[in-house]
Nucleic acid binder design. Structure first.
Ligand SMILES: [Mn+2]
Ligand SMILES: [Mn+2]
Ligand SMILES: [Mn+2]
Ligand SMILES: [Mn+2]
Lengths: 253, 253
DNA sequence: GAGTTTGATTAGGATCGGCTAACTTTTTTC
DNA sequence: GAAAAAAGTTAGCCGATCCTAATCAAACTC
C-alpha cells in the first residue's frame, strides 16, 4: 500500500496543519518521550476523542508522511512529524512561561490557555516571546523548553520520586502531569518545582514525604510524576536553605 | 418560514462560536460602523470567501439569532450579535496594542497576528493584557478599543482627510484600512497616527499634502481612510497641542 | 418600462474531523 | 491453547464550511 512516488511536499511546517493534527502529533511525541507507546486508546484519552477517531486521523497523518504505523500497533513519528511535534511543544511551553511570568497567570492556569494558543501563534510571536523572556529553558511545570533549533534537553539527573529510597533528600524540579485536577492537587500539597523534600519512608501505596515541615503520604500515582533532583549527600543537610511554612507559593515571576 | 418558538440559548458568549462565525459577525459590525451596508459581496471580499458561502453562513447566523436578514438585502446584527462582534473587536485591538507595545511588533505586523489570536484568547488573557497596558483606548492604527463593558467611543471630532479644504492643518489620528498593501503604503508615506499635516491643495484624484517637510499627492482612495484631528486655528502652526472643542480628547499611542 | 448588468441565492458536491455500532485482531486468563 | 476480555478498526453517518455552476432578483440604462 505504501508508495514511493507520492507528492513530496518539501519543508512541511506546522503552519499547514490543522490544530487537530498538531495535537495528535504533539501527544504522540509526549507519550514516546515518556517512554510510553502511543496507542490508539492512550491518544484518544489525551486528545479527548473516541478511539475510532484516532484511527482515522492516524491514517491521514500516515498518508502525509508524518507518522508510521501498522494496524493494531502503536504509532511512531517520522522525522518530519517529530520536528513539527517539537515545534508545538516549544510553542506550548514558551507560552506557559510567558503567561506565568509576563501576564501573571497562576501555576494551574497556564496549561489550558497555552493549549489553544500553541496552534495559532506565528514564528514571529514565538521569537519575540523568547526574546522577552531571554530564552527560558523551563516552563512553570519544570518541563524543558525545546530550543529554537528544536533540541530538547534530557533530564538525566532527575529521578522519579516514586523510586527514591527512604532518607533521600532532593528538590522537586518537574511535574509531568497533564490533568487539571491532578495539577490542582500538586499545588494544594505545595509540591511545586523548587521545593526541597525528603523521603520519610515508603509505603505500598506511595511515599511518605517530608516537605516544608509537614509530612504526608504522596500517592504512588502522583509520585511517579514528580521528578526530583537528588541531593549528593543524603545524610548531610540540604544544600539550599529554604525552609519556612511552605505557604508562600513559589511563583516564578 | 420564520418561527418564534426557537430554542433560546441564554447568554451566548463569543466562546461558543467558531472562528469563522466570529469573523462574519466582526466584519458585519465593522462595515456598519463605517456606515456601509453589510452586503453579501462586501462580506465575501473582507472575509475572503465566495458570495455563496456568505449566504450560507448568514442563514446559520440568522437561525442562531445573531443577525437579522431578508434575502437580497444587507444584514444587520441583533443585539446579541453586536455584543459578540464588539467583544471580538476588543480582542483584536487590545491584541494589536499588546503586540506593538509589549512584544515590539512593527506597525504593519500586528494585524495579521491579531486576526488569528482574537478568536482564541480567554477572558482572562484579555483581562491580563488590559491590566498590563493600563486599559489602552487606541490600537496602533488609532482605532478605539471598546471598553470591558463593550462601550465604543465614537470619533466625532475626527474628519476624513479627503474632505478637508485647502489650508487645513491637523494631526492624523486614525488609519481605517484593512488591506496589508494599503497599510504598507501608509507607512512608506509616513502617514501614521500622530503625524501633523497640512492640506496644500485639492485635486480631482486626491489631496496634496504637506507632511514632515515634504509635499505629495495622497490618492483619494487613501485619503478617505485617514481620519484627522483638525487644528482649531488653521492659520497658527502648532506641532503638538491638545485642542478642545469642548470635549476632552485622550489618546495614548 | 424592457432589457441588461450586477448582485444574491440555490443546488449539488467536497473535505475535515468528529461520532456510533459492528466487526476483527491481539492479549490475557485459566 | 481455547475462551474471554481488551484494544483497534471499519462502515456509515453527521455537521460545519467551503466551493462551482446555474438560477433568480434587483438595480441601472436608455
Ligand atoms: Mn492544543
Ligand atoms: Mn507545562
Ligand atoms: Mn479573525
Ligand atoms: Mn487595528
Amino acid at each position: 500500500m505504501n508508495d514511493a512516488g507520492e507528492g513530496r511536499e518539501p519543508h512541511k511546517g506546522s503552519a499547514s496543519l490543522s490544530p487537530s493534527q498538531q495535537d495528535y502529533l504533539k501527544q504522540i511525541f509526549l507519550l514516546n518521550d515518556a517512554s510510553q507507546g502511543a496507542t490508539t486508546q492512550l491518544l484518544a484519552e489525551r486528545i479527548g476523542v473516541r478511539p475510532a477517531s484516532v484511527t482515522g486521523m492516524l491514517k491521514r497523518l500516515a498518508e502525509e508522511g508524518l507518522v508510521e504505523r501498522a494496524p493494531y500497533r502503536a504509532v511512531h513519528l517520522t522525522e518530519t512529524g517529530r520536528r513539527i511535534a517539537v515545534e508545538i511543544v516549544r510553542h506550548h511551553r514558551l507560552l506557559e512561561a510567558f503567561l506565568s511570568r509576563t501576564l501573571g497567570y497562576r501555576w494551574d492556569e497556564v496549561h489550558e490557555e497555552a493549549e489553544a494558543l500553541e496552534h495559532v501563534i506565528s514564528e514571529r510571536f514565538e521569537q519575540k516571546v523568547a526574546e522577552l523572556l531571554a530564552d527560558p529553558d523551563r516552563d512553570p511545570h519544570g518541563d524543558p523548553i525545546p530550543t529554537r533549533e528544536l533540541a530538547l534537553k534530557e533530564d538525566e539527573h532527575l529521578t522519579t520520586l516514586a523510586l527514591l529510597p527512604k532518607g533521600s533528600r532532593g528538590t522537586i524540579r518537574r511535574v509531568t502531569l497533564q490533568d487539571q485536577d491532578a495539577l490542582n492537587l500538586v499545588e494544594r500539597l505545595d509540591l511545586l518545582p523548587g521545593r526541597a523534600i525528603e523521603v520519610a519512608g515508603t509505603h505500598p501505596d506511595g511515599i511518605s514525604l517530608l516537605v516544608g515541615g509537614s509530612r504526608f503520604l504522596v500517592p504512588a500515582l502522583l509520585a511517579a510524576h514528580l521528578l526530583v533532583d537528588v541531593a549528593p549527600h543524603p545524610s548531610s543537610a540540604q544544600p539550599k536553605t529554604r525552609e519556612g511554612t511552605g505557604r508562600p507559593v513559589a511563583h516564578e515571576q
